[in-house]
Design a binder for these strands. Sequence first.
DNA 1: ATATAATGATTGATTGATCAATCAATTTTT
DNA 2: AAAAATTGATTGATCAATCAATCATTATAT
Lengths: 207, 207
Amino acid sequence: MSASLSLEEKKKRKRAVILQAAVKLFSENGFAETPIAAVAKEAGVSFGTVFTYFETKEVLFQASVLEPLEEIKPYFYEIEERYSGSPMEKIKDMIHCQVDLFAKSMDYLRLIQQVLARPDRYPALFKELDDFVNVFIDKIYPVIAEGQEMGLFYKDSPPLIAQSYLSLINGMRLTFVDDYTNLVWNDMKIQALRLFGPVPNAREEMQ
Amino acid sequence: MSASLSLEEKKKRKRAVILQAAVKLFSENGFAETPIAAVAKEAGVSFGTVFTYFETKEVLFQASVLEPLEEIKPYFYEIEERYSGSPMEKIKDMIHCQVDLFAKSMDYLRLIQQVLARPDRYPALFKELDDFVNVFIDKIYPVIAEGQEMGLFYKDSPPLIAQSYLSLINGMRLTFVDDYTNLVWNDMKIQALRLFGPVPNAREEMQ
DNA sequence: ATATAATGATTGATTGATCAATCAATTTTT
DNA sequence: AAAAATTGATTGATCAATCAATCATTATAT
C-alpha cells in the first residue's frame, strides 16, 4: 500500500493525520476536555505516538491553531492578487471568498474562538491572531481608501471599516453555529458589503 | 455590621458572592480549568461551602451563565418600553445602549462565547442563548418593518438584519478584547447602524 | 439573666477518578 | 542485525465530590 512512500513522507502524513484529529477534537471538546488518548484513537495511532510527533499537549494545540491559519492567510493577505476590478468589485469578490471560507471551516473557527475568548490562557496564540488581523487591515487599507476617493464607500477610517467587517464575519460563526446551508451565509454577504458603503440593491449586487 | 441581616438574607448574599467569583474565574479560565478551590478562595469561603450553595460544579457554571443573562434580557426584550421616537431613533437608541452594555460586560460575554463556541458541550445553555436571540428577533421585527415602510431601512428580511446586527456586536467582543476605551465602541455603533439602512453621516447621527 | 441544648452552616481532609508525560519493551524498517 | 518507530503500562499530579468534625447562632430551660 505505502511501499512506495519514503519514511519521511509517511511521517509527514502521520503527523497530518494526528493534527487533523486534534483540530476536530479540540474544536468540539476544548483543550482541557480533550484527552490525548482521544486524539490518538481518532487518528488511529497509539497514545505514545502522539508524543513522538508533538512534544506536549500544549504544542499540539498550538499547531492545531497556527498551521490551518497559514492556509487561511492567503485569502486575507493577497488582496490585490486574488480579487480584481474596481474597489467595489474587489471588496465584493473578497467578501464572497472569505464568507464561503468561513462557512465551511466550522471546526477550525470554533477553535479560533476558544483562543479569542481566553487571551490570558493563550497569549502567544492570541498575539498571532491579533497580528493576522492587523496585517489584513494594512493590506485592505488602500482598497478602501481608493473606494472612498471614488465616492463609493463611507468616509470613516479604513481600519474601522475593516475591523467591523472582521467582527461581523467572526460573529457569524457564533450566530449560525449549526447552519451548514449557504442560504444565510449568502444573505450575510450583503450585510458585510453594507459596512463598506451604502448598497441599496445589495442582493443583486452580490448575485 | 451584619447583625441586622436575617439568616435568609445572609445566605442570599453569600450565594451571590460565590456566583460573582465563579463568573470571573470561569470567564478567565474556562469551566475545566477553574478548580472549585479557586472559586472558594476568590469568594472568601471554604471549599465545602461552595457545594452547599451549588449542588455541583456544572450547576454553578449554569447559574454563572443564566443568571446574568436575566439582567441583560430587558435591554433586548423591552424595545418599545425602553427606546422611543421614530424607528430610526429607536434603533439608534437601542444600539447605543446595547453596545455600551456589551463594552462593559467583558467578563460575562467571554463566558457566553465559551458556550457558543461549544454547543455540544453545553446543549441546555446553548438553547437558552438561542432562544434569547430568537425572542429578540421577534421583538425587533415590527420596528424594522416600520422603518422599511418609511423608506429608512434596507428592504431585506428583518430577521436577516437583526441577525447581522447580533453577529456584529458579538464579534466585536472577540475583536476588541482588551480595549476598555469607549472610542472604538462608539465608532462601532455607526457601523452597527449601517446594517439597518444607509447612513452617510452616521458619525453625527450617533453623536 | 445565665446556662444548656438544638440547629444548621462551615470546614478541609480523604477518596476515587482522570489524565499528561515517561519509558522500557516490542515491532517495523532498512 | 542495527536503527527507528511504535506501543501501552506506569507514575505522579490534579481535582470533584463526600462527609465527619467543628463552630456560630438561636431557642429553651433554670
